[in-house]
Design a protein around this nucleic acid. Structure first.
Lengths: 197, 197
DNA sequence: CATATAATATACCGATTGGTATAAATTAAT
DNA sequence: ATTAATTTATACCAATCGGTATATTATATG
């Protein structure tokens, strides 16, 4: 990693939580200047415009979480345990996620919805990746004889992601983790009662 | 309703979808001027600042949906049918909700999260009202012997709202109603298999 | 119809927005 | 060490931001 790429990465890391907190259009260059600790000229020497930083910041925010979850999932053998580990990540890391302004996927999805087409496409891609990951785990579980054949992988994936993101929204809005906690309970109950063989 | 209150209402109605689409800080006065069809001076003659319009717009957006749902729920006798009617509203009205920029509760929750304290408080209040409404229906169903005694009303309310809002997020982001549809299916399945006696 | 009052439009305010040209400073190569 | 290339800082740009003072118009009351 050359010097140029190093400062690029530094800028992205500093900018990422700001974009996640204040939105991808809602964040101003002056906020970034403060958070990054570099002048506007220096920042624009490494990125062509604010949009390029914001897209890189989203990828950083999302990639960060994706990487952590992948580790947890890979650590489990049984497919049902993989699903539960996935869900538990959000409960365990809720404080950390909150400190960075909430779930970047949820924030960016709403933030970009009617305003920022390039970001919206990235979000759609990320969500599809999410859903596919979960559906693949379920599908693999069925093949291995660990999960009920009647279960539809795509159905589970949608419900799964909705409960996690919905729970985060409710817990952030109310300032009470109980909602996310209830949803993770529901997921675990679902996995153990309807999926697991 | 006097003339003054009439124009106030007119302004709110015109402003409401704009705020829902572009965010409560993301909407500019010039956008409002265009959408409302009045000059800035005229608008400021009826509201003291942008914030006052944005808060009134959120209440309008939320109240609109709340009123429609209340009608649907009241039309059903059985408590389980009330819950299903509640959920089905979002599926039936998804196109209409989409046209106005998505669910105002979800949008405002994310939008206000790290930026707009007064709106965040209104959102928290609205969500609490939501959850209470659902929990009360479940509780009443238990008392009437229509719903399983083992069910926890608050737990159901959280899962219920999360599935609806999560489904809307996924369907809006992906441009595919299938996600919301799957979640409503899940809710109906839950009501019929785990709640209904 | 005349007058008082309320509502709307015009024109402007300072501050901030994203972005850039250029100068200064730093780094890398000879 | 000197030069060339890159990176960073300064100072500025037009455009837009939310908001307001004032002029104009419309409405209601006598």
């Amino acid at each position: 990693m050359g010097k140029a790429e190093e400062t690029r990465q530094y800028i992205i890391e500093r900018a990422a939580p700001i974009f996640n907190k204040f939105g991808y259009e809602g964040t101003s260059m002056s906020q970034l200047v403060t958070a990054i600790g570099m002048t506007k000229g220096a920042i624009y020497g490494n990125f062509k415009d604010k949009d390029e930083i914001s897209l890189a910041a989203f990828e950083h925010n999302f990639g960060n979480i994706a990487k952590q979850i992948e580790q947890r999932v890979r650590a489990k053998e049984n497919t049902c345990d993989k699903l539960i580990a996935f869900a538990n990540f959000y409960l365990d890391e809720f404080a950390e996620i909150s400190q960075q302004g909430g779930c970047p996927l949820l924030n960016a999805a709403i933030d970009s919805d009617n305003t920022h087409q390039p970001l919206k496409e990235k979000v759609a891609q990320a969500l599809e990746g999410w859903l596919n990951t979960i559906a693949r785990i379920v599908h693999s579980g069925i093949k291995k004889g660990q999960i009920n054949r009647q279960v539809k992988p795509e159905q589970i994936a949608t419900v799964f992601v909705s409960l996690i993101e919905g729970g985060i929204m409710l817990s952030r809005a109310s300032g009470n983790t109980i909602h996310l906690s209830r949803n993770i309970d529901h997921i675990i109950h679902m996995v153990n009662q309807e999926l697991r063989l």
